[in-house]
Amino acid sequence: MANLTLVQAINLALIQEMEKDDSVIILGQDVGVNGGVFRVTEGLFKRFGPERVVDTPLAESGIIGTSIGLAMAGLRPVPEIQFEGFLAPAYDQLCTHAARMRTRTRSMFTVPITCRVPVGGGIHAPELHSDSPEAIYAHQPGLKVVMPASPYDAKGLLISAIRDPDPVIFFEPKRLYRAFREEVPEDEYTVEIGKARIVVEGNDVTLISWGAPVVQCMNAIDSSHHSIELIDLRSICPLDTETIVESVRKTGRAVIVHEAPRNCGLGAEIASRIMEHCFLYLEAPIQRVTGFDTVMPYYKLEQEYLPEAHRISAALEEVIAYGTATGLGSAG
């Protein structure tokens, strides 16, 4: 075991997969000589050489399109896009080619790419460098979308993503890159795509989140005297409905937390699934603690925008109090 940051865990996963499989290739702007904009690919250029750690021009459509061609020809490219906002120029390639190639060719061609993308706010960057577009890509059939919130999950999920035969967008919460360390096995292991993690068990309310806000949820739990169950989704698509449903049937209450704007966010999809499967178990309306329906603000207002612990605590209190104040007790 080693005590690693999220950045180090990802770096280790890349090294181990590249050593194991020479069809794994990294490409992107400054991933080679410079080791990546967040230094995630540090040391890889020296270790694996310019044929496998490829510096490309600043051309997102070109980077992802090239990766798709590489994948169709049998390799396993791991392109890096520097910030989630820069996925926009590559949206065409991701959604018109990567996501559909398997269907379009009845599985004759597949696109096993792992598109690594730093995501989310909290580092005082402006919009396009602090956004949370995961729901956009989860909406496209053919893509898988994951977002780890811990070094352990980052390593295991990245190995799963690289080995996955379909395109995976691997979002890395940049706020957590160096936020804390965790024991991470040095041996290779996988974390299954599509399986959520119960971070804390509890009975009063289910708190559901993913990415950087998971840490804020932990802070909210630490300051609460209630018994709160925290689920870290880890996979956005496929979504682990079963774990969510099982938990909400137990607690009868749910709060969903995400950084992305509220309108058409993933919270709406999760709330809908809870309604479909847990309607008669619910003791209170589902609450969402989210970003606001506006463009991500610059750093002076960033803390106002992000779903920080105090907002999560307020929502938890409200959901737990529901019924008691109105006289419609939970036994009713």
């Binding site: 399109g65 798709i68 590489l70 020809a73 390799l75 390639q93 080619h97």
Partner: peptide, 17 residues
């Protein structure tokens, strides 16, 4: 035009192989 970067990837893959 969107097939052009894919062509780059195909050529890249054959050269690597």
């Amino acid at each position: 035009g969107a097939q052009c970067p894919l062509g780059v990837g195909l050529a890249f893959a054959t050269r690597y192989q």
